[in-house]
């Protein structure tokens, strides 16, 4: 029983981690049609900025956090202003995010006092505090609880933003039909900076929340981003609830196979690809349009 509960908790925490990254990517795709490959990379870069300030320069944690997120926001604004806006369509912009991803990775590698270890310690004020689960012989850390809580808040916040606010309406309208929305006074240049700034800020925050649990480093965040990408497919890249659902299901599948079926080598790490193939097959069998509409209806 304890093992089962622990497996579920592991799956939930990991699922939140995937969700956190995936939600930011869904936000960008849904409002601009661009698949933001750079999401994790930007997050790591912002995480290192915050880490530098907090751990090396002894800033207060929240000040460092704020500066790190602000840095990511500024990068987002600059990227929108100087790159995205000059490119003609979503495809070329997606490729540009790949370039940004490589650039962000390069920056992290190049700064010598960032890359002097394969990973850096970046504790939060909560690190080390845990909540014991009654009746089970393990505990959940505050950092994990904060992570899960943030995902819930972020999910609700984005849902509210996209469904209930004029800003969200404008974002979606511009994405659906830039010319028609321009005709009605809502230009792309009005909402796109907000989208990119918000998404990059979320990316930075995500990494700063993951770092106390996982250490601050590049490789695993990139791998998480890849998995997050896989789960965004479940929601057709637009649906927030389906994305969170997909992330949680993926993480639970991984946790259960790793703990209960560890002898099947490679199965746990195969799940993201199984999931993606399954989604693609379903999309082949069922008309994409219907699925997209369902996803939008659920969005």
């Amino acid at each position: 029983m304890s093992k089962l509960l622990q497996t579920v908790i592991i799956g939930t925490v990991t699922g939140s981690l995937y969700s956190l990254l995936a939600l930011g990517m869904v936000l960008v795709y849904r409002t601009t049609g661009v698949l933001n490959i750079a999401h994790g990379g930007i997050g790591v870069m912002a995480g290192f900025v915050a880490w530098d300030l907090v751990q090396l320069r002894h800033w207060p944690y929240y000040a460092g956090l704020l500066v790190g997120v602000s840095f990511a926001v500024l990068v987002g604004l600059a990227f929108e202003r100087f790159v995205v806006r000059r490119l003609p369509n979503a495809g070329s912009r997606t490729v540009a995010t790949l370039g940004l991803f490589l650039l962000a990775q390069g920056v992290v590698f190049v700064v010598p006092w960032w890359s002097n270890n394969s990973a850096q310690v970046f504790p939060s004020p909560f690190t080390g505090r845990v909540v014991s689960i009654p009746g089970a012989d393990f505990a959940v850390s505050y950092d994990q609880i904060v992570l899960v809580g943030t995902v819930v808040l972020l999910f609700l916040g984005l849902q509210f933003l996209l469904r209930r606010t004029r800003l969200g309406m404008a974002m979606r309208a511009v994405s659906d039909d830039p010319a028609a929305s321009r005709l009605m006074g809502v230009r792309e240049e009005l909402v796109a900076p907000v989208v990119w700034a918000m998404a990059f800020g979320i990316a930075g925050l995500s990494v700063m929340l993951i770092a106390p649990i996982n250490l601050l480093e590049n490789t695993s965040i990139v791998a998480f981003t890849l998995k997050a990408l896989a789960v965004t497919f479940v929601g057709g890249l637009v649906s927030l609830p389906l994305t969170v659902l997909g992330a949680t299901v993926l993480a639970l599948l991984e946790a259960f196979t790793q703990i209960y079926a560890a002898d099947i080598r490679g199965l746990p790490s195969a799940w993201p690809f199984i999931l993606m193939v399954a989604v693609l097959v379903i999309r082949l069998i069922r008309p994409t349009k219907a699925l997209d509409e369902q996803a939008l209806a659920a969005a």
Binding site: M169, R172, D176, D177, M184
Partner: peptide
Amino acid sequence: RLFRSLSVLDNLLF
């Protein structure tokens, strides 16, 4: 050229 992902009402509100 409606905003396809927006609901009918949101289109009108827009």
